[in-house]
Simulated assay, not measured.
Amino acid sequence: PAPDLISEVIESVNIPVRVMIRPRNGNFVYNEDELEHMKACVEFCKKKGAEGVVFGVLHENNALNIEAIEMLTEAAKPLKVVIHKAFDNTPDLQEALTQLISIEGIDTILTSGGKSNAFDGAENLKALLKQAGTQIEIMPAGKITQFNLTEFHHMVDAQVYHGRLIVGELD
C-alpha cells in the first residue's frame, strides 16, 4: 500500500498490522531497483510501528531468492516476517521450507500447500506442518472461510489460519 495508507491504518486501529511489501503485480522475480524499493518500504513500516511485513522473492526458476529474502528479513528486524504465497510457486516445498527455517527472523509462511487453495493442498500442508514443528509457523491460506474453517482445521490441525472471510462480518 501507499505510505500514507500504511500510516493511516497503523494510527487508526488497535490491532497489530502486517504490511504486504510488493513493488508491483505479476511474478515475484524482482530486479535490484525493486528490491531496494522493498527494503525502503520495510524500513518505513518499521518506523511507523507495524507489527510485521509480508513478502516473497523468487528467482526466474521459481526457487526462493534466499539472498534477497535474507536482506529484507535483516532490514525488518525486529518486526515479524511472513513469507507469502510466492512460496507456493517453488518447485520443492520441503526444500524451500528448510531454507526459510535457516533464516533467523522469519516467523511465518503463508501457504496453500503449493496448490490453488488450502483444501487442494491439505496433504502438503500437513507435511509442511510436521516438518516445521515449532521452528516456524505455517499459516494455511486459500479459500478458508468462517463456514469451512472447522472442517479444514480437522483436516490439517494448524495453529493459525488466513482467510478474507474467516471471521464473518465485522462492525
Rank of each mutant, 00 (worst) to 15 (best):
A2G: 04
A2W: 03
P3C: 09
L5H: 10
I6N: 06
S7R: 12
I15G: 03
I15S: 10
P16E: 06
P16A: 11
P16Q: 05
V17I: 14
V17S: 02
V17H: 05
V17P: 07
V19Q: 04
V19G: 02
M20G: 02
I21M: 06
I21Y: 00
P23N: 05
P23C: 03
R24K: 14
N27A: 05
V29C: 15
Y30Q: 06
D33L: 13
D33T: 13
H37I: 05
H37E: 15
K39F: 00
K39N: 01
K39D: 00
C41I: 03
V42M: 05
E43W: 00
E43R: 14
F44A: 04
C45D: 01
K46S: 00
K47H: 12
K48E: 15
G52C: 02
V53M: 00
V54E: 00
V54I: 15
F55S: 04
F55V: 03
G56Y: 10
L58E: 07
H59D: 12
E60R: 11
N61E: 12
N61P: 06
N62T: 13
N62P: 08
N65P: 06
I66W: 02
E67T: 08
A68D: 01
A68Y: 05
I69S: 01
E70Q: 15
E70V: 10
E74Q: 14
A76G: 09
K77A: 11
L79E: 01
V81L: 01
I83K: 03
I83Q: 00
N89V: 06
N89H: 11
T90E: 04
D92I: 05
Q94R: 02
A96M: 08
T98W: 06
T98F: 09
Q99Y: 13
Q99E: 14
I101L: 11
S102I: 08
G105I: 01
G105D: 00
G105P: 00
D107P: 03
T108W: 07
T108Y: 10
T108Q: 11
T108C: 11
T108S: 12
T111K: 07
S112G: 15
G113A: 05
G114T: 11
K115F: 09
N117K: 15
E123H: 10
N124M: 10
N124S: 13
L125P: 11
L125G: 12
A127H: 08
L128C: 10
L129T: 03
L129N: 03
K130V: 07
Q135L: 03
Q135T: 04
I136C: 01
E137I: 10
E137R: 01
A141I: 14
G142W: 07
G142N: 08
K143S: 14
T145L: 12
Q146V: 15
L149S: 04
T150K: 01
T150S: 08
H153P: 03
H153E: 00
H153K: 02
H153I: 02
M155R: 09
M155A: 09
V156R: 01
V156W: 00
Q159E: 12
Q159D: 13
V160G: 02
V160A: 09
L165F: 14
L165I: 08
